[in-house]
């Protein structure tokens, strides 16, 4: 038996929660792929810890989406699990940055750094949300992401300003990831409605602070900010890279083929 894909009633509030939840889940899943494969035991634990933080954030946001989604036909409601396991690629709303394959340790660190430098001030600003539940999620998440930013910054500095080989790998990772960073600051009509109500902040206000943080760390790491201004987008509306399908296939295989399976 194979479980069918769910349908989601994407009101602005639901769409918003799913976007943030999907970022955290997909990036968290990418980090879980490193489990047992990091360069040292110490870093293995560090990456797994960050992955668990992100998956915890995803759960809180999926639970919020479930609470806010109008009930489906027959009174059925979506849950954290159905959002995670029973949506297809085109229904995922995460940033393309989060789904990119891991590559080497340098790229894993750089991807996490670029995201953490954005999401930490983002959640800090969201602590003032007029929505008490979102503000509470933001407050918990910010403590975690503050550490992610510190951890990845230290590694970016050491690897960038390390050996010629580690420097080149970090510069290559930065070039590879750069065009995927613009999507973090995008906003659309659905989010503009929530911004007008004071529920969420406009992500574009984070941009200048993010750029300063990134520039400061890259300077210390002797890395060069790419000049290209052209940015990829599509993840927020379900247009994904070819990589997400493989990730979902692995993540969803068990719950889809064994519905209701428990530990």
């Amino acid at each position: 038996m194979v479980t069918n894909t769910i349908s989601v009633s994407e009101t602005p509030q639901v769409l918003y929660a799913l976007r943030r939840a999907d970022d955290a889940l997909i990036l968290g899943h990418r980090l879980s792929e490193c489990c047992g494969h990091a360069p040292t035991l110490e870093e293995d634990m560090a990456l797994a810890n960050i992955g668990l933080d992100l998956i915890g954030q995803a759960r809180a946001l999926y639970a919020l989406a479930a609470l806010r989604e109008p009930s489906l036909e027959g009174g059925r409601a979506n849950t954290e699990d159905t959002y995670a396991y029973l949506r297809d690629v085109g229904q995922y709303r995460n940033l393309l940055l989060c789904e990119l394959p891991n590559g080497d340790f340098g790229r894993i660190i750089m991807r996490q750094f670029l995201y953490s430098a954005f999401i930490d001030p983002y959640w800090r600003a969201m602590m003032k949300s007029s929505d008490a539940q979102l503000a509470a999620i933001a407050e918990k998440a910010e403590k975690e992401t503050a550490y992610h930013l510190r951890y990845t910054s230290e590694w970016v500095i050491r690897l960038g300003d390390g050996t010629p080989k580690s420097h080149d790998r970090m510069q290559a990772a930065l070039e590879f990831l750069w065009s995927y960073t613009g999507e973090m600051f995008d906003t659309d009509e659905a989010e503009a409605m929530l911004q007008a109500e004071g529920m969420i902040i406009d992500a574009s206000v984070i941009h200048d602070g993010w750029r300063t943080t990134v520039q400061t760390i890259l300077d210390r790491a002797t890395l060069t900010l790419p000049q290209s201004a052209w940015m990829q987008k599509g993840g927020r509306s379900g247009r994904h890279s070819e990589h997400l399908g493989f990730l979902l296939a692995e993540m969803q295989q068990l719950p889809r083929s064994e519905p209701g399976a428990v530990w």
Partner: peptide
């Protein structure tokens, strides 16, 4: 005990390994 390159990374690794 743990392995780390310098004091800052040692502190981070200690947090990651021993205060989970």
């Amino acid at each position: 005990s743990l392995h780390a390159e310098d004091a800052e990374l040692a502190l981070q690794a200690a947090r990651n390994l021993f205060t989970r």
